[in-house]
């Protein structure tokens, strides 16, 4: 636990000691808010829906950028081998990196809170869907982070890590979307739809916390982090 916390702190420090965190935060908040304000005046409704409509797309693009270096760079720079010789359990290392990036993502989401405050001051905002939307963004972000972390562990090439994570995240999203489901017969499509991240996101973002959605995101996270640990362990033995 202690070790894990130490790794979280270390990772956060790394993020903030380089321009990565700042660029990420500015880009995330900037794009999200710009997109939100582009639609909210025309919508004329006290709702954060425009924000939560665009968040999945932003997450899809920025999360792989956040995770691409987490393992790849260590491997490239050789610090990875150092790490493997230390008394740090793989699971602690994985969780530490995961939580650090999740905290950064949460911080980015907090930066968009101005939108909610603005809307609440201009109309009767229903806070339920707002809470749901932020929760959904955090869940989706966590799933994407876990995927990105896993892909990053599999390669020492950061570009490859980025593209790989992007591809997998996109695939996870697309599998539940209309355009993809239309290609399959109805019963199969219904089963496939269960594994899409987008529909889950929308469901939570409208203000409904459903156990199934939580289980879904949690299982994506668990499987990816588990696979990540497995990869580390496998390498350690070698």
């Amino acid at each position: 636990m202690q070790t894990m916390l130490a790794i979280v702190k270390k990772e956060l420090r790394t993020y903030f000691n380089s321009p990565i965190a700042y660029v990420f935060l500015l880009l995330f908040a900037g794009v999200a808010l710009a997109s939100f304000f582009q639609q909210i005046w025309a919508l004329k409704q006290a709702s954060l829906r425009p924000l939560f409509d665009v968040l999945p797309l932003i997450l899809l693009l920025v999360v792989p950028a956040l995770t691409m270096r987490l393992w790849s760079e260590e491997r490239k720079l050789g610090t990875y081998e150092v790490l493997m010789t230390l008394p740090v359990r793989s699971i602690e290392a994985v969780l530490g990196k995961f939580l650090a990036s999740l905290l950064l993502l949460a911080l980015a989401l907090v930066l968009t809170a101005g939108a909610a405050i603005t809307v609440a001051s201009l109309g009767p905002l229903d806070w339920g869907p707002v809470a749901g939307g932020y929760a959904a963004a955090l869940f989706m972000g966590a799933a994407y982070l876990a995927v990105g972390l896993l892909v990053s562990a599999a390669t020492d090439n950061q570009i490859l890590a980025f593209l790989g994570a992007l591809l997998v995240c996109f695939g996870l999203w697309a599998v539940g979307e209309e355009f993809f489901l239309r290609l399959w017969p109805q019963p199969l499509a219904e089963t496939l739809a269960v594994f899409g991240t987008g529909a889950r996101f929308r469901s939570i973002a409208r203000g409904v916390l459903d156990l199934r959605d939580l289980v879904y995101y949690a299982s994506v996270v668990v499987v990816c982090l588990g696979a990540n640990v497995a990869i580390l362990e496998a390498r350690k033995e070698r």
Partner: peptide, 30 residues
């Protein structure tokens, strides 16, 4: 490792299909 991951993934799929009919939800709207 691959086997472990595959098993985990299979569990993910199974769990999600398992909870599909479950209906525990919390409506946050006013």
């Amino acid at each position: 490792a691959a086997v472990v991951v595959a098993l985990l993934a299979a569990n993910l799929v199974a769990l999600n299909l398992l909870v599909r009919p479950a209906n525990a939800r919390l409506d946050l709207t006013e």
